[in-house]
Write a protein that binds this DNA or RNA. Structure first.
Length: 889
RNA sequence: GGGCGAUUAGCUCAGCUGGUUAGAGCGCGCGCCUCACAUGCGCGAGGUCGGGGGUUCGAUCCCCUCAUCGCCCACCA
């Protein structure tokens, strides 16, 4: 376990064993006695394979859960899978089609058995794959929406809603997928803007002349049972009540008046096909028109149309109808027409509005409290604007078609009496006989929409309808993290179900993250072949690199753009950072071979007087990182949290502090024990702060810091507390000047191509008090990092050399002797002076503006004055240097 | 047709309540195998903050408008 760290970071070597240790530790199950923090994982489909969408979604959830777990919450991230009715059935139907079979060949029971065995094989795959990215789910509570318990919950919910009159059965126009052969909800019929045509057709009037109607679906005219006009439309008012001779179908149909007609659109007259259009259905109902269903479930023309059209596919029928109308001279004109056409969300087939008998949930009563929850602030969305979408949907909610003509799912718990009484029974338990007459019963053939089980998950997964301890402890939950695509399918409905069945919203924060897209901003998809396999990324770069890239590449609500063609570049940031962390860790750990003194508390704790300026500086920077990262995690600004730790680790700790302490660590100067204490502590804190985002590498390194209890895990360690005593403005300013000076000297070196090996001298004059103290304290640091033979303070420049000025006005001089290119140095200084003069000029104008001084807040004015002073000072210093060099005007 | 969002360096994005010398990563150029790291170190180039107008002492940030892209909703057939 304490094998030396590999020189080269190898994610594959550490991730498996660490995940095993986490599992064995039991940390993924919520600890008893603490305040809970609960996230329900959006259950992936049983047949799903991990894609980047999951990668992103699960990374975010895991980051939040790990953060809260470390903060001491009883964190529960509850995983499960969804039986995914249509999707799964489609997969299995495709599989048996390869054997030349349909589900009807197999019959219901055999087909269902087939799906079950298929799912038994594949069901656990996705959850296994999720582990690869480090997900800290409580696997002991894993559920499947078709489990016995969740099935009971489904029945309970159905029966309760039925008993309240919120579930009903009726004949309505629903969206029908002619390929899946099932009803779909409004949400499942995705509108796609389509370039279609608007056909203007002449319908002859019995009394002579004709009426023009416009339609986008001419084939439906075979099912027309009326023509409607607006009651106030002068052009047509007198025609109301007259008769139209419907062409092709050769039927006589009435002209009716209805408010739903828009006189402005088309000709102002509408053909009415009650069996194939929701608006027409309503008009037909009001006018008492007949409904003629002209299509089979497969969307071929049915027996109800003239023989020559029967059996034709709807689009073929469309062509034939148009052709015949044209031949008859009844086609007035055709114009291009953009409109939204519904497509099945599972197979993309154009859905057909169809009249059929289905089960529905009356949604308005459920929507009201769900909307109130948002309005009152009980429920909030991140980003906020998503709340408006939620509200709009709730306000315009339509009843939910919950029956599906599928075989894979929860069978509708309704039994029809086939004996004498004809009663319909809704029951929590299977019925053998009619409760009314004792006669035979037949269960409804249909199953429920998949989402009818998903919307219960926040409590059904915890044991509902039983009042289990889990239910008491972990409902309601806290955050719900998902893609905006399922806001209505799932999130909104969970809120409704939560309030309806448990009296409380199931979570308070809905974090809707973006979508993973390619560089052309196309959604990643199997069909486009632009996907990225997260498992390949994990394999090549490690889970931490994947997670870091995902988290840092996306701010609240924005999409994550990755290039599937260039994984090396896409994941470079994460891979490089993991590598950096590993090497910094390797260095630090190899220098902590002995006991490390604590920074506070114990008797041999490092005293404040023992700290160098650099120590105080890194401790202050670390404190700032704690505050920044903690606040960012709390606000779901994971990219900011990751960025804060990244900068601390790379820019502060690795680039400066580690370099600063080397002489102490090597024993070249005293104070090694203090440096070790400080670096151990700040590194430890950095690992904690980063752990939610990069759990594996941080776990591996953290466990090797001396003084760990055996078996201690970072995943269960406590979150760093902010400590006001660590703040230290003096050290931040002072060490900042040290950094500036080193940079200034490096720039001069670079300008004149002074070889890295060649030690030079540098002197600083005109020092401010903080600069003097800092440079005296860190003289050695400057000398080493700028590769100086000596840093001299207050030694006036002599001879030719490079000049620079620090932000406090300190004048830096690097003697160059013959190496100087006087012209070049003069030009360089002139450019810098010009830049400063520009700033000074602007600033002077600003401060000369009486309005500004009078109206801007005093603190702002004071700040601007100070800036002016600084720039003036810097410009003056450089001017004097130019003079010194004899640059001339 | 309604509603919303975006437009900042070559690319991907920060810039959260108007005052910053507008930042990061990747890419690019120059110099470095400096005993943790070349998946690295040092230095650097690169931006009229989409166009136009306005409010303000002051606008990348607020308002209007135009353009482009995207998302959500919608029974004008």
């Amino acid at each position: 376990m304490t094998a030396p760290l590999a020189p080269q970071f190898d994610a594959r070597a550490i991730e498996g064993p660490i995940y095993e240790r986490w599992l064995r530790s039991g940390l993924f199950s919520p600890r008893a006695g603490a305040a809970p923090y609960v996230i329900m994982m959006p259950p992936p489909n049983v047949t799903a394979n991990l894609h980047m969408g999951h990668g992103l979604n699960d990374t975010i959830q895991d980051t939040l859960v790990r953060f809260e777990r470390m903060r001491g919450r009883a964190a529960l991230w509850l995983p499960g899978t969804d039986h995914a009715g249509i999707a799964t059935q489609n997969v299995v139907e495709r599989a048996i089609a390869r054997e030349g079979l349909t589900r009807f060949d197999l019959g219901r029971e055999a087909f269902e058995a087939r799906v079950r065995s298929y799912v038994a094989d594949t069901g656990a795959t996705i959850l296994q794959q999720i582990r690869a990215i480090g997900a800290s789910c409580d696997w002991s509570r894993t559920y499947f929406t078709l489990d016995e318990g969740l099935s009971r919950a489904v029945r309970e919910a159905f029966v309760r809603l039925y008993e309240k009159g919120l579930v009903y059965r009726g004949h309505y126009i629903i969206n029908w997928c002619p390929r899946c052969l099932t009803a779909l909800s409004n949400e499942e019929a995705e509108k796609e803007e389509t370039a279609g045509s608007l056909w203007h057709i002449r319908y002859p009037l019995e009394a002579g002349g004709h009426l023009v109607v416009a339609t986008t679906r001419p084939e439906t005219m075979l099912g027309d049972t009326g023509v409607a006009v607006h009651p106030k439309d002068r052009r047509y008012r007198k025609l109301v009540g007259s008769t139209v001779l419907l062409p092709l179908a050769d039927r006589r149909i009435p002209v009716v008046a209805d408010e739903a007609v828009d006189p402005e659109f088309g000709s102002g007259a509408v053909k009415v096909t009650p069996a194939h259009d929701p608006t027409d259905f309503e008009i037909g109902k009001r006018a008492g028109l007949e409904s003629i269903d002209i299509m089979t479930p497969e969307a071929r023309m049915a027996e109800t149309v003239p023989e020559r059209f029967r059996g034709l596919d709807r689009f073929e029928a469309r062509r034939r109808v148009v052709e015949e109308l044209d031949a008859l001279g009844l086609l007035e004109r055709v114009e291009p027409h953009q409109h939204g056409v519904g497509h099945c969300y599972r197979c993309d087939t154009v859905v057909e509005p169809r009249l059929s008998e289905q089960w529905f949930v009356r949604m308005a009563p459920l929507a009201k409290p769900a909307l109130d929850a948002w309005r009152s602030g009980t429920l909030r969305f991140i980003p906020e604007r998503r709340g408006d979408e939620y509200a709009m949907w709730m306000e315009n909610i339509r009843d939910w078609v919950i029956s599906r003509q599928l075989w894979w799912g929860h069978r509708i718990p309704v039994w029809y009496c086939e004996g004498g009484c004809g009663r319909t029974s809704v029951s929590r338990t299977d019925l053998e006989a009619c409760p009314g007459c004792g006669g035979a019963v037949r269960q409804d053939d249909d199953v429920l929409d998949t989402w009818f089980s998903s919307w219960l998950v926040p409590f059904s997964s915890l044991g509902w309808p039983d009042e289990t301890p889990d239910l008491a402890a972990y409902y309601p939950g806290h955050a719900l993290v998902t893609a905006p695509e399922i806001l209505f399918f799932w999130v909104a409905r969970m809120v409704m179900a939560g309030i309806e069945f448990r009296g409380e919203v199931p979570f308070t924060d809905v974090y809707l993250h973006g979508t993973v897209r390619d560089t052309q901003h196309r959604k990643m998809s199997k069909s486009l072949g632009n996907g990225i396999d997260p498992l390949e990324v994990v394999d090549r770069f490690g889970a931490d690199a994947l997670r870091y890239t995902a988290v840092s590449g996306m701010s609240v609500g924005t999409d994550l753009i990755l290039d599937p063609a260039d994984l090396d570049t896409s994941f470079a940031a994460g891979r490089n950072f993991a590598n950096k962390l590993w090497n910094a860790g390797r260095f630090i750990l190899s220098n902590l071979d002995g006991p490390v003194r604590p920074l506070a508390g114990a008797t041999n704790a490092v005293r404040r007087e023992e700290l160098t300026l650099a120590d105080r500086w890194i401790i202050a920077r670390c404190e700032a990182a704690v505050v920044e990262a903690t606040e960012a995690y709390e606000r779901y600004r994971l990219n900011d949290a990751a960025g804060a730790v990244y900068r601390f680790v790379w820019s502060d700790l690795a680039d400066w502090y580690i370099e600063q302490i080397k002489p102490r660590l090597y024993g070249d100067v005293p104070g090694g024990d203090v440096a070790r204490a400080v670096v151990a502590q700040t590194f430890d804190i950095a690992l904690r702060l980063l752990h939610p985002v990069m759990p594996f590498i941080t776990e591996e390194l953290w466990g090797r810091i001396p003084g760990r209890r055996p078996g201690a895990l970072l995943a269960g360690a406590r979150w760093p507390r902010s400590d006001a005593r660590a703040r230290d403005d003096e050290a931040v300013t002072g060490f900042g000047l040290v950094q500036e000076l080193v940079s200034a000297i490096r720039i001069v070196r670079g300008e004149y191509g002074i070889p890295p090996g060649q030690a030079i001298r540098a002197s600083v004059t005109n020092l401010s008090r903080p600069a003097r103290r800092a440079l005296e304290a860190e003289r050695g640091t400057v000398e080493r990092l700028a590769k100086l033979a000596a840093l001299e303070l207050d030694v006036a420049p002599e001879g030719a050399g490079g000049h620079a000025v620090l932000s406090d006005g300190s004048a830096v001089f690097v003697p160059l002797g013959d190496a100087i290119d006087l012209e070049r140095e003069c030009a360089r200084l002139a450019a810098e002076i010009a830049r400063l003069d520009g700033l000074v000029g602007g600033q002077e104008r600003k401060l000369a503006n009486a309005q500004f001084v009078a109206r801007a807040p005093a603190a702002v004015v004071e700040g601007e004055r100070q800036k002016l002073g600084t720039w003036k000072e810097q410009a003056a210093v450089l001017r004097s240097k130019r003079e010194l060099l004899g640059c001339g005007a």
